[in-house]
Write a protein that binds this DNA or RNA. Structure first.
Length: 920
DNA sequence: GCTTAGGATTTG
């Protein structure tokens, strides 16, 4: 509330009777009154009222500089809901009547949707209350004492990443994949229903704080299911079940208290209350729920709206949630803080994994801290390890094993080394369980894998179970409830029983194996040891000294109770930053390797390139320069004086920006300024605004044809679209080479651009054609768009002179109009790695050479954008270990730039280098 | 084709 923008400095901020646009903190010395609390007895002298303008009437002249204007302001949603419980049914919308110059100023300066603060008003009885059902009172603002302040309206933003996002403004957007967030219409198209106002059988949008969640788990149907419970300021808790086939489409909820926004969820009556279900067009965005910290949307949606309004709602939910007493979750702890026998959540990085059997997977992870408890040891054959198996001694000492079972093993099998993982509901158990154990510990896993086969093939075993022979009473209830028979033959694959029955089988299996299998001669333990153990590359545990009872093992049990699960965390997650810092501070390049298993896999990612030529494979880039230079190391580059060239071989560890479309820029070859590319929503609004008052273009060298387009009603009256042809071009039979249009929307422009060669949107300036401002393209050709430099252009729209059959191009048009053309540029920051060394370099000047693509094409078509994406995924595979990244032959230049603080900094840029191999 | 799940620790 303290950031009021300075729009109009000519007006005195404290003078009554004016619309003020630049007051720092309006009405702060006064008491703010909620609209619903206003009554005839309200003391107006010390009061201020704040509300959003939802209606703005016309300025009515009473003659001789006297005016009157009626508007309706409404309490903003946040204030409304916080007052909802205490207030009566009095309307939160009130008529405001402005008189005199205040009315005139308001008419000019204030738009519908903006938020205003009024002071110095008087309260009257609203004569229209029975008719408009608004507040029974009205606010009267006359020139003598009244003051009205306008809060700056922050332009909403739309984040647009793919063509899908711009479909609404068809035809296809040239800059879709690569456009920058920009403003669109000021009124959001989404409204959010408070959770206590949900009615069954509706499709709604909601916001909420997550008070319970399960990571997505495989259902018996086709999809994964995320189960959530959310709440909001109404304190209503609402269950949600989100079904999506793809894991990445699920809500990215990582912690209780996260904030979630869902669009298009279906309300459904269930168990006496409302629950939510995703429905067609569902989209979800989540936010970290901790107060402070930036509001960063987490989503895999290709397009989503995100405006200042959303930011405000998130902040409000955060603030509200901070004071609530939500039930505690499993604690999120570091390995250094693990308490035996107490379930915990762990944020960690996967180093490698090894399959144990169909239903168990061993994950080797770390989080940069040391677990103080003695841990069970595991023996793993090197051949079973997926990922870099040898670590420096220091790193290895910090790494721990997690055994993940059943449904989690299915998720875990898809994880790549170096992925950051949230493991929820880990059980830091001792390897030995209380109660009788029938089998030596080393066999348990073998038996676990054997059980499926046995149970699947030997139906009689299970039907032979008797209640008095069960060890765990809770399992028996399940047996009674569901019986075992339906288990068989229903599910293909390693998990052939439905999730709901895991309980029965999991608890029954030890019993089955212990008391039935052997007694019936179906399984011989000797036989098992001889046949199955050999096939099992991971044996559990291998105790070496110490008491097994005191050794901890981390188990992620099957099932999803209490939110147990595995989830990949995005690389920009704030919870990873600390882990990353700690992990990077630990040396990885000492030679004291701790080799897991019998045969070590050579560690490629920490090895200097000179010794690894053969293992590296062909380079993915080649130098196109003609320098005769020796290869040097990154370290040598860093130590050298600037303004030189170097040849290096390195891997691409990471790059920015993500998302990639942000890399594409516009830049001026003359003044070298770089600017962002506006997105279609911004352009759409700019053109739509300009189309409302196109004016008349009467240049004598133009032929004008106007069409009157009918409107859809009072909201959108008809408009006039004019096409102007150059007489000169017409004379030469080339009228279609370049046309000028006025009154066109972006949609019109795109349609016309498809039919003509070049198209110049113009507007009337005193009857002559003039260009629109340079925030929009000044010229269109098909899906290509050309922008001009605000600094370097001297615009005047003139007739294009051409000689005979000369082909028109954008340079000629720009030159004729005095426009300095902007060029497309691609700016990326690459982090190179060479053994233990890293170096940050830029890709800018020779980006086209690097990707072998025209940036003009990248701006205009998806295929070229895909080429860049494909190349980057090849050079830096998502989720892969650095060992899997191809090596790059690079030519680097070094140079210095002057920073804002006057200091000089050395920069590095990739030049004259092309990628060789890109995936199909 | 249009369900799946609808919180409530495993028994490794």
């Amino acid at each position: 509330d303290n950031n009021y923008c300075c729009v109009n400095t000519e007006r005195c901020p404290t003078m009554p009777g004016h619309v003020v646009l630049d007051q720092a903190s309006p009405g702060s010395h006064l008491t703010r009154i909620l609209i619903s609390m206003i009554n005839a007895a309200t003391d107006c002298s010390q009061a201020s009222v704040r509300g959003k303008v939802i209606q703005k009437g016309p300025l009515v002249s009473l003659g001789d500089e006297d005016f009157v204007l009626k508007a309706v302001i409404e309490e903003e949603a946040s204030a409304q809901s916080s007052s909802a419980r205490s207030s009566s049914s009095i309307s939160a919308s009130i008529n405001v009547i402005l008189f005199g110059p205040l009315a005139r100023d308001f008419s000019e300066a204030v738009n519908q949707g903006e938020v205003v603060v009024v002071t110095g008003f008087t309260v009257g009885k609203s004569p229209t209350a029975h008719k408009d059902r608004l507040h029974p009172c009205n606010l009267l603002l006359s020139a003598e004492d009244a003051c009205l302040y306008v809060l700056p309206s922050q332009p909403p933003r739309v984040v647009s990443r793919s063509p899908v996002a711009s479909k609404r403004t068809s035809p296809p957007s040239p800059s879709s994949e690569v456009s920058k967030p920009a403003k669109v219409s000021k009124v959001s198209k989404y409204t959010y229903v408070p959770l206590n106002e949900l009615k069954p059988g509706a499709v709604v949008n909601v916001y909420g704080v997550v008070v319970f969640f399960k990571q997505p788990y495989k259902t018996r149907g086709t999809d994964y299911c995320s189960s959530l419970k959310i709440t909001d300021q109404s304190n209503q808790k609402v269950g949600c079940n989100i079904f999506c086939e793809r894991l990445e489409d699920h809500p990215k909820v990582f912690q209780l208290g996260d904030i979630i926004r869902m669009h298009r969820v279906k309300t459904q009556a269930f168990g006496g209350s409302i629950s939510l279900l995703n429905t067609f067009g569902f989209s979800v965005v989540t936010f970290d729920g901790r107060p402070k910290g930036p509001v960063v949307p987490r989503t895999s949606s290709k397009s989503f709206q995100f405006e200042s309004k959303d930011e405000r709602i998130v902040e409000e939910l955060r603030t509200w949630a901070a004071d609530q007493d939500f039930l505690p979750t499993t604690p999120r702890v570091h390995l250094s803080g693990v308490q035996p026998q107490s379930y915990f959540d762990l944020t960690c990085q996967l180093l490698w994994k090894a399959p144990v059997d169909n239903s168990c997977l061993l994950l080797k992870v770390w989080d940069g801290t040391r677990c103080p408890h003695p841990l069970q040891k595991f023996t793993v054959e090197a051949s079973a390890i997926e990922g870099p198996s040898s670590l420096s001694r220091e790193r290895s000492d910090l790494a721990v094993v997690i055994l993940v079972f059943d449904n989690h093993a299915d998720i875990g099998r898809h994880l790549k080394a170096w992925t950051h993982v949230l493991a929820s509901g880990l059980d830091p158990c001792s390897g030995l369980r209380p109660g009788p154990m029938f089998w030596p510990q080393t066999w348990t896993h073998v038996l676990a894998s054997a059980r499926t086969h046995v149970l699947a093939s030997a139906r009689t075993l299970c039907s032979g179970l008797r209640p008095d022979s069960m060890f765990w009473p809770q399992a028996w209830t399940h047996v009674l409830a569901s019986g075992l028979d339906p288990c068989f033959g229903l599910r293909p694959g390693p998990m052939f029983w439905p999730q709901a029955w895991t309980h029965v089988l999991a608890s029954a299996r030890t019993h089955v194996l212990a008391t039935v299998l052997v007694s019936q001669g179906l399984l011989d333990p000797e036989d098992l040891e001889g046949k199955v153990l050999r096939k099992c590359p991971t044996s559990v545990p291998c105790s070496s000294g110490g008491s097994v009872q005191n050794q901890l093992a981390f188990h992620l049990h099957g099932g999803t109770s209490f939110g147990r699960g595995l989830r990949v965390l995005p690389d920009d997650s704030p919870d990873i930053q600390e882990l990353r810092r700690v992990v990077e501070s630990i040396p990885e390049d000492d030679n004291d390797f701790d080799v897991e298993g019998d045969s070590a896999i050579m560690e490629t990612w920490g090895t200097p390139p000179e010794t690894m030529d053969d293992a590296r494979g062909p380079c993915a880039t080649e130098r196109r320069c003609s320098h005769a230079l020796q290869q040097v190391t990154l370290e040598e580059v860093k130590q050298s004086a600037p303004d030189q060239r170097f040849h290096v071989t390195a891997q691409l560890k990471s790059y920015q920006p993500r998302p990639l479309y942000q890399a594409l820029k516009l830049h001026c070859p003359k003044c070298r300024a770089i600017q962002e590319i506006p997105d279609d929503d911004f352009l759409s609004e700019a053109f739509s605004e300009a189309s409302k008052a196109p004016g008349c273009v009467t240049d004598p060298w133009l032929l004008t044809e106007s069409i009157l387009l009918p409107g859809d009603g009072p909201q959108s009256p008809g408009r006039s679209l004019s096409i102007h042809l150059s007489k000169e071009l017409c004379k030469n039979g080339r009228s279609k080479d370049l046309i000028y249009v006025t009154g066109a929307t972006l949609e019109d422009v795109c349609q016309l651009a498809a039919a003509y060669q070049y198209m110049l949107p113009v507007m009337s300036s005193g009857g002559s054609a003039s260009l629109m401002d340079f925030s929009v393209p000044f010229l269109f050709r098909g899906t290509k768009r050309y922008y001009g430099c605000k600094q370097c252009s001297q615009v005047s729209v003139k007739e294009l002179k051409i000689d005979g059959s000369e082909e028109i191009n954008e340079e000629m048009i720009a030159e004729a109009m005095g426009v300095q053309l902007l060029q497309y540029g691609l700016l990326m920051k690459l982090q190179l790695q060479q053994g233990p060394d890293t170096l940050e370099v830029l890709l800018w000047r020779d980006a086209e050479t690097f990707f072998q693509v025209s940036l003009e094409d990248v701006a205009a078509n998806q295929e070229a954008q895909n080429k860049i994406r494909g190349t980057m995924d090849f050079l830096c595979p998502p989720g892969g270990s650095i060992a899997d990244h191809p090596w790059l032959d690079l030519c680097l230049t070094t140079y210095t730039v002057q920073e804002d603080d006057g200091l000089k900094r050395v920069c590095y840029q990739v030049c004259q280098t092309s990628t060789i191999t890109t995936p199909a």
